[in-house]
Design a protein around this nucleic acid. Structure first.
Lengths: 217, 217, 217, 217
DNA sequence: CATGAATGAGCCTTCATTCAT
DNA sequence: AATGAATGAAGGCTCATTCAT
């Protein structure tokens, strides 16, 4: 239901089954990778609204090459976004294997924070109504949600965090926290959120503060 | 509820010393107020990147009038921002007087959330390097920081929240949480943050808070 | 049903009822006229596909001015087209008053030919599917159809041409004949068509020479 | 019906003197034919301004192949045009052999009309100043002029049409009539022209022949 | 030779900013 | 002082043409 997407990374390079055009394909693929990497860097530097020309220049290609692979500017943004979502989601298992549950969780959240922090302007773009961005939130949730969920579950099973946190909510919360960059106190803010996760963990404080529900009122 | 604040600072209106220009100045001020209000509405609707023309149209004036008062587009954005910062900061005392500490705190945070939520694109703008935006973060902290601090202090004194929260961190955290709009789960996220505030309040959990330190680093 | 359009020429200059902005308006109107004239000349020279910049340059204005008055490139083409349709239709009564029926008819058709001949590329544009061009054929027929019809009726009443010719067909025929320019033999072709009109006229000349002098001029 | 013409001139295929390249040349020729046919279809669908890429795709080749045979885009347009001119001219003798003079004439004119009608944008292209198009009008007249002339002569000899019509004029007239497509009333217009041919024919109709139907037959 | 990826000039269009009225 | 017309730089995108594979 979540992972039965096509193998990540293939989103823009439909691979012909025959092997005849493989040489050219390899070239193009390398170019696409260069492009995605350049775009990622430019987005981190100048925001996702950076001119296509700037991205093309940084990749050392002409604008035509960008448009060959990403017919709309938004497609490039989406592709970079997806590639990084994939990479970020893919980091979860390794972290889970190498660290205790709670550490793995916060390590991954920091990994995720860094990713988000390089997407200045993405929030505005996502709300721009551009149809190319429409599937992005779903992609986001479908790939990162399960990654975070497993980490959360492990941490909850270890009694380190409360068990009633919706992964998507947390994703969004941390995401928004870092959307404007990870410069100053972003890490502290994320920590604050993680503290929120701990509040009410498996062994809640005996006299646990009353107004949990009316926190909003 | 917003307009009946006393008009905030003269930040952009050079003050003529003579008294004969009083009528003119009142006129200009009314014009500026109209402009700021229009801009606020447009920003809420179309983001801070909305064309100047749209703002002028909404205010019922020509673009020239906008540029008379705000020589650069960014100045208008900054002015709107400052006006709302002032209004938001000014709301703190009233809330503190009318509600118990913890309620006052969360009510103000929601008030603040609404303000931020109408500034789509502001995060990107703040990082654009435009010098007109440079003093904004400081203005932000200088006005909202103390407002929040007093509310936090009261709540901490009442034992409702932990006492080691930096107001600026919280400001920024909630701000970022709502930068992309207050549509779906923003409130839940803010609640999560407020839960974070409560964790470790006057009656900290007796045995639970396991690896708190490894969360922060 | 046909003439109850707004006064021709006003299509792009909505006139405010008040007189306050009249001075600016007059300026803008003069500019629009310059623009339309420049566009007409450029269209005659380089076809209707000429770059907007070229038109703006010839009018001595910036491209922004063009787009201020004609939000889409196609709107400018349409405006020029309409203006000339109006002028051409308006020429019919004068010709009818000054010449015998058949001469008036062929004189007007030549007038019309010259107009069409300066619209290279228009046929292609009209078939481009651009919505801005959609109302053009109707405008064309509604304005030129009656103009030609009255001339045809007079000529038919005088027995000079057959009476079963659909003005719209003739309009289209002559129009197409001249769409590629009036350089070489366009006039002869139109004459050939006019001969077609005469064939089967009410009083077919028993011996009347094919080379009607008033057809060729 | 169109493909079974003998392949028209080698206008674009440099002829290697050796005989060993026969097979290759046959291959190339087949390729060129495919290309010309594809281009013809695309021109009919999207006009002569259609992108080279679209033509290459329709022919199932890469753009490089197009440019190998037609160094400039205009060369391809010209080649298609010439091929169809050849085919159209070649149809005249057969029609003359199978039909009475007047029928042969109007049948050929319709054949010719269909050819022209599939060349949207050609008029504009011919006036573009592109040197590749410069010899086209002459080619046109040199091939189609005689074809039409013989049909006209036969019809004139049979007393069906006047004898003073310049074939080139008629060619151009009918051509222009159909340049914008043969959709609605193009046929009526051509009929009107044919009526023009009849006017002043050897045996002018005394009173009846307004019936256009016999013009097409 | 064929292929199609890459190039980049050039087009349309938008919008911040200026300035004549 | 207000207005909005004019400006033109800048950006997205297309497509003819070239060239490495």
């Amino acid at each position: 239901m979540i992972d039965d997407e096509k193998t990540p990374g293939d989103f823009a390079v439909p691979d012909a089954p025959g092997g005849a055009t493989r040489a050219v394909r390899a070239d193009a693929k390398r170019n696409i990778d260069t492009l995605l990497e350049a775009a990622k860097e430019v987005f981190a530097t100048s925001g996702v609204d950076a001119p296509v020309r700037e991205i093309a220049a940084r990749a050392g290609v002409g604008v035509g090459t960008v448009y060959r692979h990403f017919p709309q500017r938004a497609d490039l943004v989406a592709a970079v976004f997806r590639r990084e979502v994939d990479a970020c989601a893919g980091a979860a298992p390794a972290l889970a294997a190498e660290h205790p549950p709670c550490e793995a969780l916060s390590a991954w959240l920091r990994r995720y924070s860094r990713f988000i922090a390089t997407k200045r302007g993405l929030a505005a773009a996502l709300h721009s109504g551009d149809p190319a961005f429409e599937p992005l939130p779903a992609y986001f949730r479908q790939h990162l949600g399960p990654a975070l969920e497993s980490l959360l579950d492990s941490a909850a099973a270890a009694g380190a965090v409360r068990s009633d946190v919706d992964p998507d909510d947390l994703l969004r919360a941390v995401g928004n926290l870092c959307l404007s960059g990870s410069d100053a106190g972003a890490e502290r803010m994320v920590d604050l959120l993680i503290d929120g996760l701990r509040y009410g963990a498996r062994f809640p404080a005996a006299d646990s503060p009353p107004e949990q529900s009316d926190a909003g009122g």
